[in-house]
Design a protein around this nucleic acid. Structure first.
Length: 163
DNA sequence: GCCAACGTTGGC
DNA sequence: GCCAACGTTGGC
């Protein structure tokens, strides 16, 4: 299986890259609460251990890619859908038909500076990224290898961090 | 199956 | 705060 690359959006007021790096053992957290079928399908079927993740902060003054992460556990049922006390509870979900899935993500390294939407949109390669498309609300989206490499380069990541 | 109404996302 | 874009719901 070739390695693939993804961008995952999060509202930093809710869960930031800093939260991932500092509030979790081994910088690793489950990515729960996704309640969109298209994103669910990606989480369940397409994200694999070792895939690269661009961590994007949305819904703030300067939305930006702020860090690098990786998938450390492939899709498995999102148990928060079964928990009536959870904000993400879904009464339709059951043990045998969980409906919703999540992955585990591990923070690798913050970017040396936030790669803002403005910077992305001004870049010859990155201006084509899905995340810039007007009206795109998908919280998990594919990133082209060339885009990944370009971000790595801009961020000055070494080989180990980029991998 | 159509589609209007509604709620949410998220940039600006 | 505004509002466009989108996904979901539910009446018919």
């Amino acid at each position: 299986m070739t390695r693939r690359f993804w961008l995952m959006k999060s509202e930093p007021n809710c869960f930031s890259f800093e939260n991932l790096m500092h509030d979790n053992p081994d910088h690793t957290s489950c990515w729960d609460g996704v309640r969109n079928y298209q994103a669910r399908n990606l989480l369940r079927d397409e994200l694999h251990v070792g895939d690269g993740v661009l961590f994007y902060h949305s819904n703030i003054k300067e939305p930006a890619i702020v860090g690098i992460a990786r998938v450390v556990r492939a899709g498995y049922p999102d148990h928060t859908a079964l928990d009536p006390r959870s904000d993400h509870f879904d009464p339709r979900a059951t043990d045998t038909k969980p409906i919703w899935y999540m992955v585990d993500v591990q923070g690798v390294v913050p970017l040396p500076f936030p790669l803002t939407r403005v910077m992305l949109s001004q870049h010859p390669v990155l201006s084509k990224m899905d995340v810039l498309r007007r009206g795109n609300r998908l919280s998990v989206q594919a990133v082209a290898e060339q885009e990944w490499l370009t971000v790595s380069e801009i961020a000055g990541l070494n080989r180990e961090q980029g991998e």
